[in-house]
Design a protein around this nucleic acid. Sequence first.
DNA 1: GCAAAAGTGTTTGAGGTACACCCATGC
DNA 2: GCATGGGTGTACCTCAAACACTTTTGC
Lengths: 221, 221
Amino acid sequence: MPYRYDYPHPAVAVDIVVFTIDDADLKVLLIRRRGPPFAGGWALPGGFVGIDESLKRAAWRELREETGVSAGILEQLHTFGHPQRDPRERVISVAYLAPVPADRLRPEPASDAREARLFSVSDLPLLAFDHAKILRLARERLRQKLEKSVLPLELMGASFTLTELQRACELILGVTLDKRNFHKKVHIMDVIEATGEEWREGQHRPAKLYRVKSRRDLTDR
Amino acid sequence: MPYRYDYPHPAVAVDIVVFTIDDADLKVLLIRRRGPPFAGGWALPGGFVGIDESLKRAAWRELREETGVSAGILEQLHTFGHPQRDPRERVISVAYLAPVPADRLRPEPASDAREARLFSVSDLPLLAFDHAKILRLARERLRQKLEKSVLPLELMGASFTLTELQRACELILGVTLDKRNFHKKVHIMDVIEATGEEWREGQHRPAKLYRVKSRRDLTDR
DNA sequence: GCAAAAGTGTTTGAGGTACACCCATGC
DNA sequence: GCATGGGTGTACCTCAAACACTTTTGC
């Protein structure tokens, strides 16, 4: 028992909400817990912060270790500190939001012998701890960002069609948008550019492909 | 040395940014540190979270203990966890934002033998730890809330004039606003009501006094 | 009567919303 | 040639911004 303090210290963890768009649905990455508490149950990926590790770095590492996913953007969401949120000991958890394009999840949970899976946000299992609460707040935040007219470019792959981008917005906002107004707005924003390529699929006119003009850093403080 | 853990635990603290409007200026409440580190320097009020205490409750208690101020609203701002932000040990700090009407600060720092003072945000001393960073983020957040057209009603006293409310907005946003547009907008929002009283001051027409219609809870999660 | 802040409407421009048809492709 | 989604323009309406004069008071 080597670590001793004059007064009690809580444990500090991070939990990561990975959102992606897959199969025309907004999905979250969850892991199955192996040990107690909530053994066998589903939970957000996460874990304890190393004593010399920044919070963001801990989030990045834990996500990587538990799911094999390397997050591009990690945005701090909220810190959850209810005294009884973990039955083992006092655990304060800093939650992070990580929008990841589906194509970065593909070779996916082939990592740490942990079962990881995408779940549609409209068909979630029971979650361990207060993770349902964390997820609810994460969805809210995602929506709020869109309402500030920030496009969910972090969720898009290397190239995408305007219809795909529109679907992403619709899934997050939970409404349907007008195609012409959407195209107009996106072009005025001037944040994406045509790649010149086209995407052929099905028996209809091919769609132009676009890419993000300059990926911006959503830095953490 | 009674508190032992299998692996190292960081300390968890809260810091509170109390904003108020006083003397036609946006001010922050700071305390003078008595012990090391940064002894004699100015810092945000704050302290360590009790092992069975929620984060918000800790923020409320510490603010009360150190400055005598009972915060009405405490909104979680951000969690700061840089490994070297405290020279003593690893300290993760959850920062809170507390807008307080000036009239609740009056009998003020007559509490814990600690020196506490309001500083204008445009004339700040050097701050201990990373508190300057926390304060910068707090001002930004305050501004963002106003831009989402949320009036800073938490900063107003029990009754106030429309001009006072407008000055508060102007101080936070750092711009001057048009009086007629402001009056119109506020009345459309329908969140304040005339008390029927008037405020006489100086050799000019008296101003109508208003009060908040229903104080809303900005609850923490 | 004069200084000083309170109060009060209208016009204009920008941006958002509603809405329908032709185009390119695969079968 | 037909079914399928891709792409495009205009009219209207709502909201935000600009802007100046009268009112009430203390001295």
